[in-house]
Design a protein around this nucleic acid. Sequence first.
RNA 1: GUGGGUGUCGUCAAGUGGUUAAGACCCAGGGUUGUGGCUCCUGUAUACGUGAGUUCGAAUCUCACCAUCCACCCCA
Length: 442
Amino acid sequence: MLIKAPKGTKDILPGQSPKWQYVENTFRDLCGRYGIEEIRTPVFEHTELFQRGVGDTTDIVQKEMYIFEDHAGRSIALKPEGTAGVVRSYIENKIYADVKPAKFCYVIPCFRYEKPQAGRLREFHQLGVEIFGAGDMTADAEVISLAMDFFEELGVGDLELRINSIGCPACRAEYRKALQDFLKPHYEEFCDTCKSRFERNPMRILDCKNPHCNELAEGAPRMIDYLCDDCRSSFEELKENLGALGIAYTVDPGIVRGLDYYTKTAFEIVTNTIGAQGTVCGGGRYDHLVEELGGPATEGVGFGLGIERLLIVMEACGAPMPEKEQVDLFVAFLGDEGRKRAQSIVHDLRKKGMHAMLDVAARNIKGQFKYADRIGARFTAVIGDDEIARGEITLKDMRTSQQRQITLDELGAVLAAAKNEETAQNAETSVTAEAAGVRQGE
RNA sequence: GUGGGUGUCGUCAAGUGGUUAAGACCCAGGGUUGUGGCUCCUGUAUACGUGAGUUCGAAUCUCACCAUCCACCCCA
C-alpha cells in the first residue's frame, strides 16, 4: 500500500511527459492567438465555493468532492472542476474593473471521488478557457472555435460537436415542469434509474438507453421548444455564428451539463473511439455564476477539456506525437585527465544548447559506448591519452560507424550541421503528413 | 454506490493437486590490450495479490478481502 499510488491516480512518467508538454504548449500557444491569458489559481478552495458555484444538488458536490478540514477547522475542497476557482479569482481581484471581456485559460489537476474506469480517474487534468463579460453569442462561437482549432492542430479527427440550449433559469423551470407532467402518467413503467431521475434530473430520462423508456419518452416536450424569446434567439445566433466559422455541429437536446451554473449554450465534443467516456470537451455559458458568487452581474462562457482523454484519442487516431529529444553527442573518456576534459566539453556544449552526455557511472570504454548506443546518441566522441597528446578528439558517427579525428573547434560545427539536417527532415515529414491528411505513426 | 473480467520475476508468459515454479524480453557483467548495435556466455531477483479453509500435499480447489481493468451511474 505504501508504494501504491492512490486508487484512480496515475504517475506521468518521463516517457509520457513530452506528450503532455506538447499538448499543453500547443494549447497555450493557441490561446495566445485568441488573446487569452493564463491564470493559475490554487488546487484547493473553500468547500463552499463549489457548493455555491457548481451547485449543491449536483453529483460532483454531493458525493465526489475531496473535502477535508484544515488545522484551523476550515472546510477545504480539492478542485473538482476549473470554473469556480477562476470566477472566485475574477471577483476577488476585481478584474471586472479591467477591460472586458476578460479571457483566461488554465491547465489544472481536478479531483473527483469516482470509480475509475477507461478515461476516468480520480485525479485528472483539464485544459480550460473562460471568458467573462461577453454576452454575445460570438463569444460562445469563439470558445467552441478555439476548442475545434485545438483538436485540428493536434491532428485529432472524428470528433462530433454537439450543441444545445438549456435555457435560462426562467424557461428551464417551465420546461422541467412540462416534462414531468408529460412523463408522470407512465412513472411506474420506467426503469429504476429513470424513476430516480424523475425528480433529480428529468431531462436525463430522454436519453436513457433502455428501449422501453425511449418509447415512453417519445413525443416528450423538448427544452428547445420551451426556450424563452431571448434564449431562442441566442441559440439561433449561436448556430449562425458556427455556420459562419464553418464549424459542423449537431443539435443534441439530450445535453444536460452536470453543473448547475450553465445557462443557454451547452456543448460537448465527443468521440466514439475511446470507450464509454467519450466526452473529451464540455462547456457552455454561465450568465449568473459571477453574480451568484458575489460579483457584479457578468456573463461567462467557457469549456473544460480532459487531457487524459485527449491523449487517449490522439493515440487512437494516430495523431503525431513529439519524439524523444536526440542526444547530439556522447563523450566517452579514458583516464582521469580524459574524464576532466570530457566533463568540460560536455558542459561547454550544454551551454551552447546541445544535448550532450557523458558517463557518470564509472563504466569502462566499452560500457560507455554501449550506454551511448542505448540512449541513442547521434555521435560519440572519445577523449583519452592519445587524443590529449594530439590535441584532437575521436568522433564516431553512431549511424555509419565512421570515425575521424577532429579538433574541438570543429566539433561544434559538425554537431550543429547534423542537428539541422535532422530538424529539416522532421519538418518535411510532418508537413507532408499534414498536407496529405495522412496519419503519422508514433 | 451496482455489476462483470483479471491477478505467477521490472515486462510478456508456461504451468489446472505432487521433487529445487519453465521460457522470452529487459537490466548488469563478460567473450584478454581504448569502441555500441548482431551473436555467444554468465549473472541478478522478497514471482504465484493477501488471509483463511479443503488436502498427506495447492500457483493449481473453496471462501473472504485487496488491487486492477471494463461497464452502469456521472462526467473531462
